[in-house]
Simulated scan of single mutants.
Amino acid sequence: MRKLMIAVGGSLVMAAPLANADILGVGANVSYWDSAFSGEVVNKDSAVDIENDLNLDSDSNANFTAYFEHPVPVLPNVRVNYTSISQSGSGEIGLEDFDVIDAGAPVSSDLDLDQLDATFYYEVLDNWVNLDLGLTARKFDGELIVRDQTNTANVSKTTVDAVVPMGYLAARFDLPFTGVSVGADGNFVSYSGDSLHDVNVYGQFEIAMLQLRAGYREMAIDYEDDDDQLDVELSGPFASVGFTF
């Protein structure tokens, strides 16, 4: 398996002046993301279009985030994020064979993608403008299973398994005295033909410890693992509810 190197160095984080939290801060939220797939999957030099050939359905995917911030200088804050994506569909292979399945065959498909992020970040600004910079280690596992409906012995399995380092950037702008804010955050990496990005923009309303958020998220994966390759994009609206302490 080839290893990805991060496209932005850790010096970006360390070079910026840091703003430490005055007190301990802990928060968590759960969100639902109504995402749609596009792109293709390659298995042993044969490709299938996951939207037009496999007709993978849009689905609501679960996402969980928790963070811990502290006033200790130098030590980074910690953010953990888990995303589980599961979609299925029925379609027909295109004009060329895909792996062991003949062209034109009716198929059923299941695509599962799990991601676990560990992010270590610093607060560069912490007032009505909030800016965080850091590094993320992302563990993702992807699996596409395509079954020939006319010959059940023909089953194609494509897997991608990797730990990827990524840059992390988050910005939020608070509207004074309203509890309303707008922001964006994302992870990015690009190296030697492989690239990933995962970005969301949102509006947020916060009252007491309750945090409500809605926005739009886009994730793109272009990654090769031996003979298997994912070149897919997921995008769609999301909503979340969380608590801060």
Score class of each variant (00 low, 15 high):
121 Y>N: 08
129 V>Q: 08
143 E>D: 11
143 E>M: 09
125 L>S: 07
131 L>S: 05
161 D>I: 00
123 E>V: 05
115 Q>K: 13
160 V>H: 02
156 S>N: 07
133 L>D: 04
126 D>E: 14
135 L>V: 13
158 T>A: 10
113 L>K: 03
121 Y>P: 00
144 L>S: 03
154 N>H: 09
127 N>V: 02
110 D>Y: 02
128 W>R: 13
156 S>V: 08
121 Y>H: 10
157 K>Q: 14
110 D>I: 10
118 A>Y: 11
109 S>N: 03
139 K>I: 10
156 S>K: 08
131 L>W: 04
139 K>A: 14
158 T>W: 02
111 L>V: 05
155 V>T: 14
140 F>R: 11
154 N>A: 13
122 Y>M: 12
131 L>P: 01
160 V>A: 06
110 D>L: 09
124 V>S: 07
161 D>M: 04
158 T>P: 04
159 T>I: 08
125 L>G: 06
156 S>M: 01
150 T>G: 10
136 T>L: 05
122 Y>E: 11
138 R>S: 13
159 T>A: 10
158 T>K: 06
122 Y>V: 02
133 L>H: 05
115 Q>A: 13
133 L>V: 10
140 F>K: 06
117 D>Y: 12
160 V>W: 05
156 S>Y: 08
157 K>H: 07
136 T>A: 05
134 G>K: 03
120 F>C: 02
131 L>C: 04
118 A>T: 10
